[in-house]
Computed example of a mutant assay.
Amino acid sequence: MGSKTLINLLLLLLITGAHSEVTFNFENRCTYTVWLAASPSIGDADPESGSGTLELFSMPDQWSGSIWARTNCAYNVSYFSCETGDCGSGTIDCQSPPPTYPVTLLNFDIKQSVVSYEVSLNHGHNLPVRIQPEGGSLLGGTGLCPVVDCIEDVSNVCPGNLVATNKDGRYVGCYSACDGLKDPRYCCTGNYSSPQACQSNEYSQKFKQLCKLAHTYPRDNDPPVYRCSRATSYNITFCPS
């Protein structure tokens, strides 16, 4: 176990006051560095994860929120910012503020040993991800807890009006229709907030073609949000293929 991993585990134990039954293993298989972020905080004292990095986190017994990876981050004088997933705080620590979209979100709800989990493209896509429970049993179903992921290159299907670029005009991610077009039809707000009005659309369907296991619009429930009981750990991989 590396020094960074050990420090993170010790900090989490201090924050939660007890050992959690839930361990998250973060592995960065991207060819580039990413910076982890979570809202609310998971106590990551050093969020920078180089290519090939493996980090272990003992999660709080009760935690509900989102985890994501920030990309292409750097200091500009004394202000820290990222091209995707940025929090707007100007610091390397990133927790409460919402991320700058587009960003691939990993949503979790932890209640002791029962964990609900999903990959969400409701705010777009900035890198491939996978959540793989180790062991455990699926609540409300049979067998082991399923893998969920979005590992394909979404840039291949991203419509031109949803492409996110950096200051040099280089592709960095794909906006969701809600964030890119600011249309309540795609955000499922206002007159479109009911289950009957909030439906899959031409943009979410493009995402779903490549990422069948991810949720691609606000009321997407195919697949359902899985609930896993007593998995030994959750392997969270960035750029898994």
Rank of each mutant, 00 (worst) to 15 (best):
Q112C: 01
L106D: 02
P102W: 10
K111W: 00
S81M: 11
T100P: 00
I110H: 02
T104G: 09
T100W: 00
T91G: 12
E83M: 12
E118T: 04
Q112F: 12
K111G: 06
P98L: 10
N72E: 13
R70D: 10
Q112E: 15
T100C: 01
V77H: 11
D109L: 01
F80Q: 08
P98D: 05
F108H: 04
F108Q: 05
C94Q: 02
T91M: 10
C82R: 06
D86A: 03
I110L: 01
V103P: 09
D86T: 02
T71L: 09
V115L: 09
R70L: 06
G85M: 04
S96A: 11
I110M: 03
V114T: 15
G90V: 12
T100Q: 13
S116F: 00
T84M: 10
C94S: 01
T100F: 04
A74D: 11
L106N: 04
S116Y: 00
T84G: 09
V103C: 06
L105G: 03
G85Q: 03
F80K: 08
V77I: 14
T84S: 10
V114S: 13
S96E: 14
A74Y: 11
Y101G: 11
T91Y: 07
N107D: 13
N72C: 03
S96T: 12
T104R: 06
L105K: 08
N72P: 00
V114E: 15
Y79C: 09
P97K: 01
N76F: 12
